[in-house]
Nucleic acid binder design. Structure first.
Lengths: 157, 157
DNA sequence: AATAACGTAACTCGTATAGTTACGAAAGGA
DNA sequence: TCCTTTCGTAACTATACGAGTTACGTTATT
């Protein structure tokens, strides 16, 4: 399993906030993600700084969406969590002056950059609302199979 | 710097073996990569198992290319080192039954798979000989700037 | 005031590559 | 035969970074 799951987890949270909980504390979100409130605050700080969610302290506080899911792209979320490294493979400058190493690493960098550009282009096109629609389709199919039930098959949020 | 540099390093070694050293011990290769002979043997074991290089024990032993660089693609090398994980981002199954999580992770997986397919297609197209040609062009330009000199600007191999 | 919540620093944990040590096996030379 | 060179490999340590945890401060509501 890849080491960095922040993007996936933040998307998960945003959809739950839109569909199910409206305002949620870090504690509640932590239960959705099966983790700790501190991890949640850390991951969501960037989303707050960029205006996708707001946080309120004190009684009745918590997190709230500050715009519609159709106004948040996957690229927005990727940037909000700090644009973490995409690839786990890459160069390692053993002898930076070696022209062989330079040639190899330049091609590797260029090739990875193409893949990165593709990913960024996709991320820019897909909104969180698109993912929420995917969820609705799965949910409809789920109701056909299992009959009417809770809003989330997991019962956790 | 990405954590896994095996592919880049193996490409570097293959080109040096073709152009400069023909037969090299793990010790010599370790110096090219500024590392340890054991690390070299570990990384090259897969290349040997797939027939791209041979290893000989004892006096006068070492590593040797067993085919031309134009018969080795980047995909061959990627596979030979064990097809390591490409991406450092991805899902994290917190609540596998949650339909929201499923929807998010399915899209993420699909998008990453597209980028992976692009990379694999590129890797399949590019041969190590292409990288060696890149090196030759850099070397020619280097000689124009600095006059005739050693075969490798680093002097390390 | 007391309580509920976020904000954040600082530390530990998990995991995978990289690096190191140690030792065995094989090949060739003296 | 014995010694040296070299690969093969297990096992351990070092490093890096996201994730998880603890602790404590701040703010807002009751």
């Amino acid at each position: 399993m890849p080491r960095d799951s922040r993007m996936s987890r933040m998307l998960h949270v945003l959809i739950h906030m839109d569909r199910h909980v409206k305002r949620a504390t870090s504690e509640e979100i932590a239960r959705m993600l099966d983790t700790n409130p501190v991890v949640v605050r850390r991951m969501m700080a960037g989303l707050r700084d960029r205006g996708f969610v707001t946080s309120e302290k004190g009684h009745g506080g918590g997190w709230e969406l500050s715009r519609g899911l159709d106004a948040i792209t996957l690229l927005d979320v990727y940037r909000a969590i700090g644009e973490p490294a995409l690839f786990s493979i890459g160069p390692h400058a053993d002898h930076p002056e070696c022209l062989v190493e330079q040639a190899v690493d330049a091609r590797m960098a260029q090739t990875l950059a193409e893949a990165e550009a593709l990913l960024m282009a996709r991320f820019e096109t897909i909104t969180v609302a698109d993912l929420a629609d995917d969820f609705e389709r799965r949910f409809a199919a789920h109701r056909v199979r299992n009959g009417p039930g809770g809003r989330c098959a997991s019962g956790t949020a």
